[in-house]
């Protein structure tokens, strides 16, 4: 329990991940599913960035004096996550585009409905 509390970034990201996953799992509405997916992605990003963050250190942007390597946090995860966010966004966009297509063909974004239409 204590571990969870001390590593609250990780805890939070795992909770977020769970929320996202459950959303993805349980909702039959496609939009909600995509939102769930996004939440999951966000959780991962949070997790990743928190790995790079060290309490009390600054972002690796030199303002005035260079504080040495010890003064800054690791910039790599942040940079990576920027890429990650871009990828996630593009996938979201793609998924949404597909959803629109699906809506055009079926007239609904509820997966249950879609399955029933197909089943009959």
């Amino acid at each position: 329990m204590e571990k969870l509390l001390t590593n609250y970034y990780e805890t939070a990201s795992i909770i977020l991940f769970g929320v996202g996953f459950v959303t993805l799992l349980l909702h039959s509405n496609l939009i909600k599913k995509i939102i769930g997916m996004n939440i999951m992605d966000t959780a991962i990003f949070l997790f990743f960035i928190s790995k790079g963050y060290i309490y009390g250190k600054e972002a690796p942007i030199i303002r005035g004096v260079h504080k040495g390597i010890q003064g800054y946090i690791n910039p790599v995860p942040t940079a990576l996550m920027l890429t990650g966010i871009v990828v996630a966004v593009s996938i979201t966009a793609f998924a949404l585009a597909l959803t629109i297509k699906l809506y055009e063909k079926y007239g609904t974004v509820e997966l249950d409905e879609i399955m029933r239409i197909r089943g009959e």
């Binding site: 991940f17 599913k33 992605d41 997790f47 793609f94 998924a95 597909l98 699906l102």
Partner: peptide, 30 residues
């Protein structure tokens, strides 16, 4: 119609998959 549905399924599952891969990378990186 079927293509779109199949694609969506593939997309969602595989993005979850890549999410997991990313998570794995995060662990390794940490």
């Amino acid at each position: 119609k079927e293509n779109i549905k199949a694609t969506l399924k593939y997309l969602i599952l595989s993005s979850v998959g890549s999410g997991l891969v990313l998570m794995g990378i995060a662990f390794i990186y940490s």
